[in-house]
Design a binder for these strands. Structure first.
Lengths: 203, 203
DNA sequence: GTCTATATTAAGATAGAC
DNA sequence: GTCTATCTTAATATAGAC
């Protein structure tokens, strides 16, 4: 309802914030509001009030609501990666991400919905998702291929196909979780990786 | 753009169609328009024109655009099932459905987007997807469990977990296909089923 | 101090929901 | 018709460079 308390304390009279900082503030606050209200349900007015600026200021930093959404999604990715050990890549990163998702259901839902709706090339986040899918599949395929050479992982299927399956299981279970919170994405993904990637004895 | 549904020429002047028939016509035409223009992009006015009725008539049969969408999605399911051998259930049905999806990309995209956006309990199609996921997982689990007793399929994992993975791979690959049409959902799903469900030798 | 780039806002157009 | 949300336009305020 009322957020006026935040205004004057966070932004002393007569001072302008530096562009990059204000941009950060807006993304952070938009993250919270989008995660709580959903994309359509969120009003930019509320975001602006919480930051302590007028709506018009938001449009100075972002061309529109969709561009702000893209910034929120990209920033979540960035934070996610930053919070993880550098050595963790590929398969273990996927499982770790699924565990993080469990802790932020609002953002995870936002992400799942956006990944489907942004399929339209006209959607502002289309490029972001297209590139990200390519990157994730590439990184996973490289990790799997490395494991294949050491015999740690089955080699009877192309690494790239296996990578696509891992990503598919992750996204697909996430979708089922939207409708049934008993579904555990991290557990299911782990089970899948253990079961599918284990070296195969010929039967 | 060509719309192949039943046209107004099938309705002689001065005759009212029976409710069920008109309803059918509307659903068929809406299917074409939604598949071509997408849900948001589609104008109900256009659907009405193509059917040969006023927009108000649409609202007589469906409370709103979302309810019409639900009817379109449900009808696609019904037709899909009707066109398939009765004996085909479970795993082979999943692969067959993926093959059909390849032939109707517009509808498939519509379905993928709707399955993510309808996660909100307030969305008109929410109940449809929730029930459908439960049904599909149940049917698949039953099929897999049967195969497990015959030794045709691995038994070291619960049938229900395997069923959820199969559904996840199907939906997940479909999502990747939205961004890269080179992804072949049916092939990937087949590969996955062959690889994962094969009885496991102990390693 | 003046100048310029950037930050911010007031006011309102437009479109859709109720 | 009223209300609310997105977005535009154009004018004002501030910070930093010189």
């Amino acid at each position: 309802m009322k957020y006026t308390g935040l205004m004057s304390s966070s932004k002393p009279r007569g001072q302008y914030a530096k562009g990059a900082e204000r941009r950060e503030q807006i993304i952070q606050m938009a993250t919270d509001v989008f995660a709580t209200e959903g994309f359509e349900g969120a009003a930019l007015k509320r975001v602006a009030e919480l930051v302590g600026v007028k709506e018009a200021t938001l449009f100075h930093y972002f061309r529109g609501k969709q561009e702000l959404l893209t910034a929120v999604l990209a920033e979540r990715d960035r934070r996610s990666l930053a919070a993880i050990e550098e050595k963790e890549v590929g398969l273990s990163l996927m499982v770790r991400s699924a565990e993080r998702n469990r802790r932020e259901p609002g953002l995870t839902t936002l992400y799942a919905v956006a990944s489907a709706t942004a399929n339209d090339p006209g959607h502002d986040s289309h490029g972001y998702f297209k590139e990200r899918y390519a990157e994730v599949v590439d990184a996973l395929a490289a990790d799997i291929e490395r494991r294949q050479t050491t015999g740690e992982t089955r080699s009877d299927l192309p690494a790239r196909n296996l990578a696509r399956l891992v990503v598919a299981v992750s996204d697909g279970l996430q979708l089922q979780w939207l409708y049934d919170k008993d579904v555990d994405v991290a557990d299911g993904l782990s089970e899948f990786i253990d079961a599918l990637l284990k070296p195969q004895a010929q039967t």
